[in-house]
Nucleic acid binder design. Structure first.
Length: 420
RNA sequence: GGUGGAGUCGCCUAGUGGCCGAGGGCGCACGCCUCGAAAGCGUGUGAGGGGGCAACCUCUCCGUGGGUUCAAAUCCCACCUCCACCGCCA
């Protein structure tokens, strides 16, 4: 969400952002509503001023005068009611449009409608070379008895899965590896609610634009969050933080739920796109400073790369295009990890800077050293999302004997085992 | 699921219809005092919006949303959260 004043003063920049991000938003309507809202507000304010002085007068009047005043009041009150109602209508529509306003993207972001316009900015490592016919993760897991797919789908429908035996341990190892590394880098580990209210979903930006991607628990007016980010933003919603408390750095772990409504029929096989997964998410709330935000962006990205390098996984980092990054993002870098079975990279991480777009929605502020209250900046990045990364891992580390070699960094979490 | 209590400007608190357009204390900031500090004294100290070149004027917010009233922190209704107890329970 953008600042109303900013929109008023920079309509062309907002228009441009709407265009390159492919947002369905009528900026002219927004500007008109902003103007109308301010005019009506002025009228309501004036009416309230009169109402208040009227009450004073009434309190001091004698009974006869009061009778006369009551009649006057009805007229005034009617006007106030009418204007207030008009203002409420305008504000409701205005707020709905404001929630759709996009962050102005970084000027270096490739302009394009979707991820086809993303640009690879570096790659790390090399493709694994196999002297046998490698299996994809589904074949491998099934042949080793490491997963249940059709049985799980009997229980929970399409995209459901159950990990078995060593796969459970390997997944847990991946998560532990990520948590331990993020602690070392200075984050606070935190496990957060996966069931959340509507407010934090609006706060992060999932709602209203992506409502259909979220599971609703209607009986309790709760939703299943698609990422720990929702709770992490929500934790500090409405707060005015002390500048000395910043940056706040979290490593949040939670189950994540996604309806994948927009991807129906795609990647239905295996573990690539599932409705329920586990994720360690990096999240930062920092001061409203572009340079500082950039530093954290690369710190988060660096942490994710470090984890992948430790695992010895071949990956590429891409600069995401304006149409791919989402409304709230200032800048987004995805990391795509190599999947031998696909013969290509596939998104496993996403690092985003949102500047104050998210903090403004969630009302996360801080008091600067000079006493000024500002909206904070927020950033987030995947550390480990599994089972997608787990699938990549087993595909990359499979042997001719259908075993899986364990990367050095994970062995401490698996009782020192070098092979599964 | 049930019963009872509570939610006020960072923290604690006063406030049961108009004097609240919210008082006090703590904390914090600045000043005086001091060689320096502490103590003491003094001054200031919530957020958001609108108008004005400006000093300034003005509106909204006492958990949230409605309602009653000329007038609501205060009365009524619903909800949220916290605390205590009862029931159930991994």
């Amino acid at each position: 969400m953008l600042d109303r004043r900013f929109i008023r003063e920079n309509p062309a920049a907002v228009q441009a952002a709407v265009r390159v991000k492919g947002i369905d938003l009528d900026v002219d309507e927004l500007l008109g509503l902003d103007q109308a809202s301010r005019e009506l507000r002025r009228e309501v304010d004036d009416a309230n001023t009169r109402r208040r002085s009227f009450a004073k007068e009434f309190a001091q009047a004698d009974e006869a005068t009061r009778e006369r005043l009551r009649a006057e009041h009805d007229e005034q009150d009617e006007h106030l009611q009418k204007v207030s109602a008009e203002l409420a209508v305008v504000n409701e529509r205005l707020q709905a449009l404001l929630l759709l306003t996009p962050m102005i993207p970084w000027e270096g972001a490739p302009v394009g409608p979707d991820d086809s316009a993303n640009v690879t900015i570096r790659t790390w490592g090399t493709k694994p070379v196999f002297d046998f016919e490698p299996k994809d993760h589904v074949e491998l897991l099934e042949s080793r008895g490491w997963a249940e797919f059709s049985r799980a789908r009997k229980v929970a429908g399409e995209r459901a899965y159950a990990l078995t035996g060593d796969m459970v341990l390997l997944e847990r190892a991946l998560l532990s590896y990520a948590l331990d590394h993020l602690i070392e880098r200075g984050s606070t580990v935190i496990s957060v609610p996966a069931m959340v209210r509507e407010e934090p979903l609006i706060g992060t930006g999932q709602f209203p634009a992506h409502r259909e991607e979220t599971y609703a628990i209607t009986a309790d007016s709760l939703y299943l969050a698609g990422t720990a980010e929702v709770a992490l933003v929500g934790l500090h919603a409405g707060e005015i933080l002390d500048a000395r408390a910043l940056p706040i750095r979290y490593a949040g772990i939670s189950p994540c739920f996604r309806r994948e409504a927009g991807s129906a029929g795609r990647d239905v096989r295996g573990l690539l796109r599932v409705h329920q997964f586990e994720k360690v998410e990096q999240f930062v709330i920092c001061a409203a400073d572009d340079d500082e935000s950039d530093r954290w962006h690369f710190e988060l990205l660096g942490a994710a790369e470090h984890l992948l390098q430790g695992l010895g996984m071949h990956y590429e980092v891409v600069e995401c295009a304006t149409g791919d990054m989402g409304a709230g993002k200032y800048r987004m870098n995805d990391i795509n990890t190599w999947f031998p079975s696909l013969g290509r990279f596939r998104e496993t991480h996403s690092c985003s800077s949102l500047h104050d777009w998210q903090a403004r929605r969630a009302n996360v502020r801080y008091r600067d050293a000079d006493g000024t209250v500002r909206f904070a900046y927020t950033l987030n990045n995947t550390a480990i999302a599994t089972p997608r990364l787990l699938a990549a891992l087993v595909e990359n580390y499979q042997t001719a004997e259908q075993k899986v070699r364990v990367p050095e960094v994970l062995r401490p979490y698996l009782g020192g085992r070098a092979e599964l």
